[in-house]
Design a protein around this nucleic acid. Structure first.
Length: 427
RNA sequence: GGAGAGGUGGCAGAGUGGUCGAAUGCACCGGACUCGAAAUCCGGCAUAGCCUUAUGGGUUAUCGUGGGUUCAAAUCCCACCCUCUCCGCCA
């Protein structure tokens, strides 16, 4: 959520910046609503002040044993008028709130301007793609060749976009998550968390999934009206830990890492990545989250991104770092770096991590604050990034570490997690 | 699932219709005293919004959440949420 002051003080400027990310802000509607709000709110508060003053007088008069009938008569009609004004104000305020909740974040000035994926800017490449002296298979053929990756079983149990892994491959998947957690806690200073996979609507609104992207979420009914949502990323429960909190300055920055499954309905992407486990309804991810003072957030974005990169480097997977353009960034983000891993079978780089600075956008929705040096509550900045998406990392390993005989070499750093196993061979 | 108790400021805890945004204590901040500290004394000490504005001032809302009664609600009524205790069940 944007600061409404920004819209009041520099509406055209805000609209121009939002336009760079393909969002059209209806400035006329905003101004009209804002003008009405001002009138109605002032009027309502005047009436409330009058009511409060009169009620107080009645109280004083009664305590003195005086006749209160004349004063009562004075406010006889106030009630209806006030009620009407309050109702009107409530409607306007909820309209304003709804409007604000659907406006995306303003891009940081360092974000490249563009309209689509193709305008993203490559910042660096790390590692050299391996050259193969045989025809590379994609991860589906590699995994099924090993009889350890079973898409048909996933379909039987649940439907499309679900997968079953078996044996050493399932263990490799677990090993990846363990490895990532160990690196981030031991080397990068993150505190490991275990969090709920079902969260309430307030949490989803806090990080920006609601109200706009309900169709991307799975939910389960609970009670008559309520429902809980399956998390699409650990970002939601982890970041919402600080919702409605005022943190002591000394506690910042907070650095959390959590390994969770992620559930996405993938509405609107029915035709994309239907083969393999690139795009699943359920996948595991190790997520990094930082809560920091505003003046540190851009330095922390670089740092957090480097933490995610460290995993790829240790796994010796070639990747590149992209700075997403204004038109390709997520709703809540002010700046995003994507890490893209090399997939030889696709002969391209594919997203495996997304690291973002949300500035105060999420914090404002969540009322996540800290007490600044002056002792005053101030909105914190929130950041997060995948460190990494476990399923896609597994895909990358299957493809990059495949051998001519169909086996898959296990990256050195993972072998301790695999009981010393060096290679996965067909069962 | 059954029975009961309870949710008030950073914490503890008073307040059951009226000068209550809320006593008191602790914690915290500033000052006095002191060579310094402790003790003591004095003062300060919630958050969000709106209007106005040179510092500032005015005003509204908030006592778990939402609704209702009333001129007036922390206080009365209804619904919901959460916590605790006991019983049952259970990984």
């Amino acid at each position: 959520m944007l600061d409404i002051q920004l819209l009041r003080n520099d509406l055209e400027g805000a609209a121009a910046r939002l336009a760079s990310r393909k969002f059209v802000l209806d400035t006329v509607a905003f101004q009209a609503l804002e003008a009405e709000r001002k009138t109605v709110q002032t009027h309502t508060q005047d009436l409330q002040a009058k009511r409060n003053a009169t009620s107080k007088q009645i109280g004083i008069a009664k305590s003195k044993g005086e006749d209160v009938a004349p004063i009562m008569a004075e406010v006889a009609t106030l009630g209806d008028e006030l009620k009407a004004a309050e109702e009107k104000l409530t409607v306007i305020q909820s309209q304003m709130q709804s409007l604000l909740l659907t406006i995306p974040n303003v891009p940081h000035e360092s974000v490249p301007v563009g309209t689509s994926e193709t305008d993203n800017v490559e910042l660096r490449r790390v590692g050299t793609p391996r050259s193969f002296d045989f025809e590379v298979k994609d991860h589906v053929d590699v995994g099924e060749g090993l009889s350890q990756l079973d898409f048909a079983a996933g379909v039987k149990l649940s439907g499309a976009r679900f997968t079953v892994m078996k044996g050493p491959l399932a263990r490799l998947h677990r090993a990846l998550a363990q490895f990532m957690l160990d690196v981030h806690t031991a080397e990068h200073g993150y505190t490991e968390l275990y969090v709920p996979y079902l969260v309430n609507a307030d949490s989803m609104q806090g990080t920006g999934q609601l109200p706009k992207f309900e169709e991307d979420l799975f939910h389960v009914p609970r009670g008559d009206e309520g429902k809980l949502y399956l998390i699409p990323t650990a970002e939601v429960p982890v970041t919402n830990l600080v919702r409605d909190e005022i943190l002591p300055l000394e506690q910042l920055p907070l650095k959390f890492v959590a390994h969770t499954p992620c559930f996405r309905s993938e509405a609107g992407s029915y035709g994309r990545d239907t083969r393999g486990m690139i795009r699943q309804h359920q996948f595991d991810k190790v997520e990094l989250v930082q809560i920091v003072p505003p003046d540190q957030s851009y330095a922390k974005l670089e740092e957090l991104t480097s933490h995610a990169e460290a995993i790829l480097q240790k796994l010796e997977l070639p990747y590149r770092v992209m700075s997403l353009c204004t038109g390709d960034m997520g709703f809540s983000s002010a700046k995003t770096y994507d890490l893209e891993v090399w997939l030889p079978a696709q002969n391209t780089y594919r997203e495996i991590s997304s690291c973002s600075n949300f500035e105060a956008f999420q914090a404002r929705r969540m009322q996540a604050r800290f007490r600044n040096a002056a002792g005053k509550p101030e909105l914190a900045h929130t950041l997060n990034g995948s460190g990494l998406a476990v399923g896609r990392t597994l895909v990358a390993i299957l493809e990059n570490y495949q051998n001519a005989d169909g086996s898959v070499t296990i990256p050195t750093v993972l072998r301790p997690y695999m009981g010393g196993l060096e290679k996965i061979v067909a069962a």
